[in-house]
Computed example of a mutant assay.
Amino acid sequence: MDSAGNVSQGAEVASIASPINLVLFSLFVVVVYMQFRPKAPVSLPKEPAPVVFRTFTPTTLIEFNGQGNKPVYLAVRGKVFDVSPGRNFYGPGGPYENFAGRDATRGLACQSFDEDMLTKDLKGPLDDLHGLDQEQLENLRGWEERFLEKYLVVGKLVAESDPEAPK
């Protein structure tokens, strides 16, 4: 300071270039750079391949059991559902894996996930649900409604001898 109490010009310059001001200026430069730097172009996720409604027989449905990254399908009352979103339940290693690629109608109606509930003769007629009581049929309706709400119907199931069966 001079005798009049004024700050000299050299001291003013030193206060602008103080370490705290340099740090703040550096942060400002970084923030401005981050805002205006070139950004990577936005890419949309790849759409899954479209699913075509088709007719299945028990022998053509069985390959859709989730093995080898294939989709997981199962049939209920002639409707074939894509249950791939529930792969943890219906796919390999899941609690309901017996139903993958199969007609699950009788098993769902009887609340049984045992292999005994599956049709053994894949070339024979479809299960006509003979022998199910009213409570089991009501249970089946509940399962079917749940599947219709949650999963996509990708086809229908017909017997090998049906005229609509794929050749």
Rank of each mutant, 00 (worst) to 15 (best):
K167I: 00
R77C: 10
A4K: 12
R77W: 06
V76A: 00
G86C: 02
R87G: 03
N65H: 07
Y96E: 07
Q134M: 10
Q136N: 11
F99W: 10
R141I: 14
R146G: 15
M1V: 05
S8W: 15
F147P: 00
R102K: 14
A49M: 08
P92G: 02
V76I: 15
G107W: 00
E145I: 11
D121N: 10
V13Y: 12
L44K: 08
V83N: 06
E47H: 10
V31M: 08
V31K: 01
R146T: 13
Q111W: 08
R141K: 15
L148I: 03
V13M: 12
D128H: 13
L27W: 04
G94H: 02
Y33S: 01
G91S: 06
V51S: 04
G5N: 08
T59D: 07
V83P: 05
V76W: 12
I16T: 15
L132V: 04
R87I: 13
I16N: 14
D103N: 09
G5E: 11
G93Q: 02
Y90N: 02
A100E: 05
M34D: 01
V13L: 13
L44F: 11
V51G: 06
E164T: 08
E115H: 13
V32F: 05
K39N: 12
F81A: 01
F25R: 13
Q67H: 11
D103E: 01
G68Y: 12
G107F: 03
R106I: 04
T105A: 03
N6W: 07
P45Q: 04
H130T: 15
P19N: 14
S43P: 02
V83A: 01
L22N: 08
P48Y: 07
F89V: 07
L132G: 03
F113V: 14
V29E: 03
G142Y: 05
V158L: 09
S161G: 11
G86Q: 14
L157Q: 05
L22F: 10
A17L: 15
F89E: 02
Q67E: 12
R54N: 03
D103Y: 10
D103S: 02
L27N: 01
P166S: 07
K150F: 11
P48M: 10
Y90E: 01
C110Y: 09
H130I: 14
Y73L: 06
Q35T: 11
E47F: 11
F99N: 04
V51W: 06
D82A: 12
L22S: 03
G78A: 03
P85Q: 06
P45K: 02
S18F: 00
D103P: 03
F99I: 04
F56P: 02
F81D: 01
V51E: 14
K167D: 00
C110V: 13
A109Q: 08
F36M: 09
L157N: 00
L27P: 03
Q134V: 09
L108A: 11
Y90C: 08
M117W: 07
E47G: 09
S18D: 11
G91Y: 05
S43A: 00
V23W: 03
T119Y: 08
V52C: 09
